[in-house]
Amino acid sequence: MNIMFYVLLLFILIAAVIAVETKNLLSSVICIGAIGFGVSIMFLFLRAPDIAITQIVVEVLGLIILIRATISRDLTFISGDKEFFGTVVSVVIIFMIFLVGIRVFDTIPEFGQPTFAQAHNPASETYIEDGLEKTGAANIIASIILDFRAYDTLGEATVLFTSIIGATVILRRKSRKALGELE
């Protein structure tokens, strides 16, 4: 499984690089889709089917939108050269952040084993052990997102709501009334 995991990681990385570097928008979009599916498979490896499902359905929908947007555009190629100075600056900055990152990721704990955890970690253990008893939901994920942390979910639903309202507002046809219409 481990090897598969790293192969997948490599696949995602390559797709990401192609998505950034290619000049054909459609290829770029398809690469983004590939990344998304790769990620959802990784979730499956990590034994998180809920997130995998969500990831996959959102990916499908997102891909449909992106492809439609791309193919209905006349301009499917990005033109123009990259600035040399900008590239150099980005590379230098990324390299330096990478240097810092090495030190940081050194300290990242084993998966699911927080370094700083207290001897007894009440939250996650309780979720797993007593989730069903406490909430009656067999799916622990559901018990967490809709009961223990339902308030977060309300927040996320609101995020979605806000972005929809925002999109409808920004995409409306007429934004200002004519001067005469005011009173």
């Binding site: 089917p49 969500t54 067999a138 799916n139 994920i141 559901a142 018990s143």
Partner: peptide
């Protein structure tokens, strides 16, 4: 959603 993987969000999508 409360029994098997999935739920409101995935189903909605």
């Amino acid at each position: 959603g409360h029994l098997t993987p999935g739920g409101g969000f995935a189903g909605g999508v």
